[in-house]
Amino acid sequence: MDKPVFQSLSLRKSPRISDSEFVQLRDFIYDMTGIFIKEVRRYLLESRLGRRLRELGVDSYADYYARLTHPLTREAELTCLFENITTNETSFFRDQKQLEMFRSYPLNESIKELKTRGRKELNIWSAGCSSGEEPYTIAMILYETLKMSIMGWRIRVTAGDLSPAMIRKAREGVYGGYSFKTTPDEMRNKYFKPTASGYRVHPKVQKLCEFDLINLNDRPAIKRIPPSHIIFCRNVIIYFDDDMKKRVIQSFYDNLIPGGYLILGHSENIHALGTKFKTVRKIGGIYYQKPE
């Protein structure tokens, strides 16, 4: 095989984004999603959106912005934009030590408390649920914890994500091997049915979860989520700037019932944000509790 001429290759595959176009798109994305595109990601944004520009046959980022804001094209284009700027690394039973901590404290305490009050109604919110691995994991843990007595409970795991494609995949509930890289075999065998096209999550697990498009920067949408006893938001806020982090943590605070719990990703911390949450450290990780 002849060697091609490498000297003709170019690194620029997308139109150049001007300073003003970059600021315009960055601010737009921030307003829409709370995700802040830092200057270091400028070329990345160029190449991600450049692909879309080519598909659309649009020459400049300014024209692309016009499509993002035009009432006729806005909705479809936003969906596509969200896919281009978010990542979806997740798996079932990710961070098992933290999940054990969740089970021993926030979950157990909530169950005990609700039982004594005779109100067997538990709401959990999985914020930034990606393709559904986390909310389904929570539902499985509920089955493992409550066992047969789960029949007497009204449980709702509200699961939201920014990306319509992810919500679609989550609702479908069929997963390939990659989603099980952190999952004990026992759990997979118990709660999934192998099919030719992947593992299908058991309908009883699916029944507990409600998936919806939820944008964490959309306050009215968040207000509609029923008050939660526990909120999970793992590996989501790293994409936000401090302002947005504060706002999101505040809306979690507002959504939680007094005494409710917030669980973040293992290496995420809201220490520096100055919140009213009480920080509780246990083996396996940290959780935050809203004062009674």
Partner: peptide, 8 residues
């Protein structure tokens, strides 16, 4: 090369 200047 996504984090480098494509014109460098």
């Amino acid at each position: 090369f996504q984090y480098v200047d494509p014109d460098s």
